[in-house]
Design a protein around this nucleic acid. Structure first.
Lengths: 352, 352
DNA sequence: GTGAAAGCGCTAACAC
DNA sequence: GTGTTAGCGCTTTCAC
């Protein structure tokens, strides 16, 4: 029951608390973990002392002791991309609700960096890692990355937003096929037949799937695909969208609708269309993917495909947590897209 | 020198390595820390074995042992805001370069949450915490938050992007005064005299400073301030910008230039202007703060004040690290703004 | 240069 | 219910 001589530097520990409370350290630990009954009186005394010294249990020591860090590592290419920012925040919210912390690392799109991050996550002994984009987006998984991932998976579960062939990574994917189906059917219902698809790289899984679906739906409606309408420019940026649309509009065959690979691209596309003197959506409709806040800001407001981000984050995190507890989780799960119609799309113009 | 019997579950430790290498654990630790000479031959053997088992040192244990986690905690209101996303990524890059990891937590703008995050950071034993926005933005610091922050500061340094009166937090701020000065002088040089300032809350430090500077510069040029031109609508959003500009344009006194509190606001403001049939910048110039990627996307492209984000992140992180090592760091530092001129601003129209 | 041993702060059997 | 005793995996004196 003795007062602690304030050694200013050393942070207080359960031993200090225990001594002052006249109990054993384990009792203090018990009130901390709160899993086992403790004499209410003692608990009270202990709590008082904890508060008095503003005691904060050392999470590192706790994690070391029970070999569980209550941390989920998240690797993404770049949170500055609002698409990932949305998912990340959704993950964080879900994680916090479940009593977990998230450790975020950006790979900046560099594969080497990404590999290193896997290692880092292992060293940090996170309970599971969630990978958003990056190598998990590849149509053909990078072998050396797969190798690294497999090493990680020996230690902890990995859940990816795409896929990682040759690994046991859990997959929680956006349903790219449905995402394209719904947009195409929507446009065709509006009598569009001259539909362009702009942006993206064909070695990216979701983009590839979109393209395949695009072709499939055209065929289903007996619309002949036009080479010039398919402009996978290799990028997902504003500039690329702008450039590709400029090219397209400088030709003779002008589409009545264009599907942008994402909101960034759409933004460039819209700029190009307007600069060329066409009206949106009267002359050309524009639809897009991701439904980031940009969609609301543009003039006209953008029709874009949304993926309930909150639910997405929740599913990613739940998968990670359950897997880390070795509970059963489906190996692959899908997120349903919903098309949000705004001002940028409308009926096809009456053909001349 | 014996092979390790692969107990599949337990991760390998330096003891396992040591045994197989025929050395003591301390020697293994020495090659890990790499601070002390080790017989090159032994080192070699040890490294080989580490690789063979894909050994990853437990960062938790390391941190526990040397009471240093090499982690910097970052608290922000919402990384989905591109302004914070930019700074965060810059911090991460700087931190990684210095051998640190960052732990990101979003408070979602809730003070309680924010307080809890401080506690969480303490428990995680991060080496320092950086707070971007939130309570550090307040013109008058929230007393109960200050209290919580002070508790944290007893344990570790806190560096904030704003200020926290009554604490020893380090400050690395954007120079809001200069940011406004340069924009005002720019506009006035272009012969603008009817300048509106839209968006923001006056209990936010940087906004308050901007308003004060706005008034000061007007006075310096003998321009009488117009009540209707000062529309601190309490928000920093697209919608608020749109709404306020609509109100302003429905009046009789139309400004020739408007300063938006940030790019989000500017986006709404631009929409409103266009919908009202005015041209940008021929009729009305629009300038803004933060120079996020939005500035490049808008039509017209937005003139916006930039803060070298890379340098900002570097300074925040360096301050955090140095302070955590108890080295001397200035208590307050400033980030210089630069105005990036694009399409949305130009000379004032010839007055009628 | 290297090993032995103590310790970082906590949890979790295990007895009582 | 509570104290005792081992760890968790690493770093770091301190001798030699």
């Amino acid at each position: 029951m003795e007062e602690r001589k304030q050694k200013e530097d050393k942070p207080i520990t359960i031993y200090d608390i225990a001594k002052e409370a006249g109990v054993s350290p384990s009792t203090v630990s018990r009130v901390l973990t709160n899993k086992v009954k403790v004499n209410p009186k003692k608990r009270d005394i202990i709590c008082k002392i904890m508060e008095k010294y503003d005691f904060k249990p050392n999470a590192l020591a706790r994690s070391l002791a029970d070999t569980k860090s209550n941390t989920i590592g998240i690797i993404t290419a770049d949170v500055r991309n609002p698409f990932y920012a949305q998912i990340f925040v959704a993950c964080e919210v879900a994680a916090r609700r479940a009593g977990y912390i998230v450790l975020l690392c950006n790979s900046m799109g560099e594969t080497d960096q990404e590999k290193q991050l896997l290692t880092q996550m292992q060293e940090q002994r996170v309970d599971a890692v969630i990978q958003l984009g990056g190598r998990a987006d590849d149509l053909e998984s990078n072998p050396s990355y797969v190798e690294q991932a497999n090493r990680l998976i020996k230690t902890m579960p990995l859940v990816v937003s795409g896929k990682l062939d040759g690994t046991d990574a859990y997959q929680v994917q956006i349903d790219a096929v449905k995402a394209m189906e719904s947009i195409m059917e929507y446009l065709i219902r509006l009598k569009h037949t001259k539909i362009a698809m702009i942006g993206g790289r064909m070695d990216v899984l979701s983009t590839y799937e979109k393209r395949q679906t695009y072709l499939k739906v055209l065929e289903r409606h007996q619309i002949k695909p036009v080479e010039a309408f398919m402009r996978d420019n290799g990028e997902y940026s504003y500039e690329a969208g702008y450039r590709s649309m400029n090219e397209l509009l400088s030709g003779t065959n002008i589409p009545t609708a264009v599907i942008a690979i994402n909101d960034f691209s759409a933004t460039g596309i819209i700029r190009s269309i307007i600069e060329h003197g066409y009206r949106i959506p009267q002359d050309i409709s524009v639809v897009s993917y991701d439904n980031t806040y940009m969609a609301n800001f543009l003039i006209p407001k953008l029709t874009s495909v949304d993926y309930n981000y909150e639910a997405y984050g929740e599913k990613l995190v739940q998968t990670a947590i359950l897997a880390s507890r070795k509970e059963e989780v489906p190996r692959i799960q899908y997120i349903e897209p919903t098309i949000v119609i705004r001002e940028s799309s409308g009926p096809a113009p009456i053909s001349v």
